[in-house]
Design a protein around this nucleic acid. Structure first.
Lengths: 245, 245
DNA sequence: ATTGGCACAATGGTCCAACCAATTTACAAT
DNA sequence: ATTGTAAATTGGTTGGACCATTGTGCCAAT
């Protein structure tokens, strides 16, 4: 960005970082896409003239950032696009499995999801709308088949909307909040009809988005989250979730 | 001193993860705080009955997450609190367009900061308000002394507000957005009076918060972000930030 | 011709022992 | 007390070996 500034960090030794830079270049040159397989550790070690240990440390870094996935016996696969000047902000959210923590994630969702949906209503084109509709119908199908909300299909629908917002940060942050939420609430926790109240809002939200009605989309998303909060409060009352600080 | 370390061998597969779990327990038991030094790799290797390579791979993960800092010849130091149930959120900001990336962070801020400020207005007690006021006055002081916004004091003020929201997620996520924003925009980029327009809103926001007026606080925070966006658009126009894909 | 199972190669995961490089500590010389 | 230097400490790197898992292809049985 600031190409006029020609200062570089003093580089005494930074082997693994150099390995990653070389790997970025390689991926760019070969036009590798997410899902493609990277060269084996032994090949990289040989070609880059560094020990396999160093290659592994570098790849461990990328794996920690979710950029790469290692499968023993198979290989190392690219999971996301990489570039030299991409910005990884590792954000560690320490959170216990307390009622308060779950409510905290809802605070974030209450702030982000309505805005993301509103942006989607503004920006989604026919192609994105078709994709969202497909996810919606798949979710409704699963709901009727299993007589209840299916977390996977539900998330697929929302993810489709947030991806259509055009801002990748929404997807990443909201996904983390969902993950945190469902990690401690894998089961309906005594709430038999968990998610039932939210069902009807999905199609309404889709319609608002399809109508390019950002305010309506925002309002309906807010209602949906309110149903989630109500479910959570019922669950907390049932099980008397206690703090484990 | 290290003779009393209570570490036990581990046996499961997924060695490096087991190492990290053991380390979490160790940190908790010893009451280690950020800044404290961890046992050396050789000690860990010996006590956990695991090769030093495996210990290093585990620590590399934590280093990538910013949880730990290694200093050659000195040791490995804790940089943040760790707990078993923490969620790592790797935020990846694609660097297709710098301007677009900055606008993406603003989308998130526009969603989160008004809500966090509103929550602060609801929840802040006298003690928190006094702390916020102190940060406000320090910022205003720095502004008059240096004839311009000071990023550090500015952030201290906002951070005080978001901490008073009572939800630690707000602080962490918003801090990450600020970090991204300023990493791309370390200098005012041709906008000489960068931040001047935002100055007056700080005191207004404080007053709304002190009055426990969440809607007012939300509205004023939105205006403040609007001034940031205006600054950004002027900067982009000045320098003709271009895509570097 | 199809299918099932098995041997073998490829690949990531772990271990060891040694040495390098930076830092800290101890200690002697002044 | 200060300073300079040697030694010990600690993270960083290397090479080589072996283990565990996965993928591939051959071969026999059907």
């Amino acid at each position: 960005m600031l190409s006029s500034i020609a200062l570089f960090p003093i580089q005494t030794t930074a082997r693994d970082e150099a390995v990653l830079n070389a790997l970025v270049d390689f991926v760019a040159r070969e036009g590798l896409m997410p899902g493609d397989r990277l060269p084996t550790e032994r090949i990289l070690s040989e070609r880059l003239r560094v020990s396999r240990t160093t290659v592994r440390e570098a790849l461990t870094r990328w794996e920690g950032l979710g950029l790469v996935e290692r499968r023993q016996g198979s290989g190392t696969y690219l999971k996301a696009a990489v570039s030299r000047d991409m910005l990884h902000l590792p954000l560690t959210l320490a959170s216990g499995s307390t009622f308060r923590s779950l409510m905290d994630t809802l605070d974030i969702r209450r702030a982000l999801e309505p805005e993301a949906t509103a942006l989607c209503a503004l920006r989604a084109g026919p192609k994105e709308l078709a994709f969202i509709l497909e996810k919606l119908e798949r979710m409704e199908e699963a709901f009727h088949a299993r007589k209840g909300m299916s977390a996977d299909e539900d998330w697929d629908f929302h993810q489709a909307i947030y991806e259509a917002s055009g801002n990748p940060l929404f997807v990443q942050i909201i996904a983390a909040m969902h993950g945190m939420f469902h990690r401690f609430w894998e089961h309906p926790l005594g709430v038999a009809d968990f998610g039932h109240a939210s069902f009807r809002f999905h199609r309404i939200i889709y319609e608002r988005v399809a109508d390019h009605d950002p305010d309506g989309a925002r309002a309906e998303t807010l209602k949906l989250i309110a149903t989630v909060e109500a479910d959570l409060r019922r669950g907390a009352a049932n099980l008397k979730l206690t703090d484990r600080t």
